[in-house]
């Protein structure tokens, strides 16, 4: 008897896209928990005062710690980070979603903004 497909088994991957699913949610739990803590001002300040200690408190994996230290957004996503939570971390560094978009697509912020504006032409 053929093995039934796993419920939710995915069709073709979407290029440049990681679905935040159960695997990612498990993998990224500590990183996302740390980012969630940044809803509180005192936690943002504690992170800025001693990033290493703050990351340790949340039991980040080595992969997650490396990605945070390098401000590597794609690395954080690969380590299970969810963008809604990572946006709270980005905010600590004064980065908005265009900055984060530029970092992920290897563009300058100016070029990323232009990329967004250019899409209006086809609309």
């Amino acid at each position: 008897m053929p093995t039934p497909p796993r419920p939710g088994a995915r069709p073709e991957p979407i290029p440049g896209t990681t679905l935040f699913d159960g695997d990612a949610a498990r993998k990224g739990y500590h990183l996302n928990a740390m980012c969630y803590s940044f809803n509180r001002k005192e936690n943002r300040e504690a992170f800025l005062a001693d990033e290493e200690a703050y990351c340790r408190r949340f039991h980040l994996t080595a992969e997650q710690r490396r990605a945070v230290a390098k401000r590597d957004v794609l690395g954080m996503i690969a380590a299970g980070g969810n963008i809604y939570y990572l946006a709270k971390l980005a905010g600590i560094f004064g980065l908005n979603v265009q900055d984060v978009g530029a970092m992920q697509t290897g563009r300058t912020v100016e070029a990323f903004r232009q990329f967004l504006l250019d899409q209006a032409k086809g609309a």
């Binding site: 290029p15 440049g16 896209t17 990572l86 979603v97 984060v100 697509t105």
Partner: peptide, 13 residues
Amino acid sequence: HQLDGERAGFMNP
């Protein structure tokens, strides 16, 4: 819209 990944900035009018 898409905020994350290499496809960040994707829109589809």
